[in-house]
Amino acid sequence: MAALTPEVTWAQRSSETDETRNYLYVFINVPDVPPKSADLKLTENNVSFTGTNLKGAKYSVSLDLYAEIDTENSKVHHSPRGVEMVLRKKKLGLEYWPRLLKEAKRVHFVKTDFDKWVDEDEQDEAQEDDYAANFGGFGEDGGLGGIDFSKLGGGAGLDMAGGEAAGEEEEDDEDLPELEGEEKGDKKIQEVS
């Protein structure tokens, strides 16, 4: 069986003065490929991956990069979902790379990671998640990076003990006006002809 080409997503940041803010986020989507059956190679101009998942499917991809990366200061994390990388760009500069790959032709398996992408002119204003240290927002302790779930939708304003929104009283149906053609206690509704 021929090797499958995995989906690769990417985003980037640039800086002409701070090398720690001059990097690429690259994710190779290879679910259920254990680290022991995977081979990842980083060079200044290339990222290559081969591996076999638990069901026996083989994956292989080689990415000739647009420009050079600093392999010494790049980070790799192999998770059950795939391989996450923060690749440090070798050359400092404000301009983004125009594409991930050296060759200008479009390839179907490389996609922009819009969850991490920030436009070039907005990168200084954007709140930075420390993906370089926490790989996707998970804290070093394996937690969810200090997310306060009580502030997320769905439960906003709920008093968990009483189940009602703070400051609201239970409505009484007796205070509601009657519908046209309906008498109190009568469930018949007048038909409109």
Results as ranks from 00 to 15, higher is better:
170 E>T: 07
51 G>C: 07
148 D>C: 02
163 G>N: 03
129 D>C: 06
188 K>H: 13
166 A>K: 15
55 K>F: 12
88 R>D: 03
175 D>Q: 07
4 L>N: 11
4 L>Y: 06
182 E>S: 11
24 L>R: 01
4 L>V: 10
189 I>D: 11
52 T>M: 14
32 D>L: 11
112 T>V: 08
155 G>T: 07
156 A>Q: 15
73 N>I: 00
119 D>N: 12
70 D>W: 03
176 L>W: 03
18 D>S: 06
41 K>S: 11
174 E>G: 10
173 D>P: 12
119 D>M: 09
149 F>E: 11
46 N>M: 15
82 G>I: 01
108 H>Y: 11
99 R>P: 01
49 F>V: 02
53 N>P: 02
120 E>W: 02
189 I>C: 10
94 L>A: 12
178 E>H: 05
165 A>R: 14
4 L>P: 02
69 I>C: 02
78 H>Q: 13
19 E>A: 09
16 E>F: 09
138 F>P: 00
131 Y>K: 06
173 D>K: 09
90 K>N: 10
3 A>K: 12
187 K>L: 13
29 N>E: 13
96 Y>I: 02
38 A>M: 15
80 P>R: 13
21 R>N: 15
135 F>L: 10
77 H>V: 04
49 F>Y: 11
86 V>E: 08
141 D>W: 09
93 G>F: 06
80 P>W: 08
169 E>T: 07
136 G>P: 01
118 V>F: 03
186 D>Q: 07
95 E>G: 09
112 T>A: 08
121 D>G: 13
40 L>C: 06
82 G>A: 07
40 L>I: 08
189 I>S: 13
66 Y>C: 04
75 K>G: 08
167 G>R: 00
104 A>M: 11
72 E>T: 08
32 D>K: 14
144 L>T: 07
177 P>S: 04
131 Y>S: 14
82 G>V: 01
30 V>Y: 05
147 I>C: 07
171 E>K: 13
62 S>N: 14
128 E>A: 11
115 D>W: 03
181 G>D: 04
139 G>Y: 06
153 G>L: 13
55 K>R: 13
176 L>I: 00
183 E>Q: 08
92 L>M: 07
89 K>P: 02
18 D>R: 11
112 T>R: 14
65 L>Y: 02
106 R>Y: 10
4 L>S: 12
131 Y>I: 09
40 L>R: 07
118 V>L: 04
54 L>G: 10
78 H>M: 11
65 L>P: 04
121 D>N: 14
111 K>T: 00
177 P>L: 02
60 S>D: 14
138 F>G: 02
111 K>A: 04
132 A>I: 05
155 G>F: 06
57 A>N: 15
160 M>P: 15
121 D>Q: 14
160 M>I: 14
86 V>T: 09
190 Q>A: 10
79 S>L: 05
50 T>L: 03
175 D>F: 03
28 I>C: 05
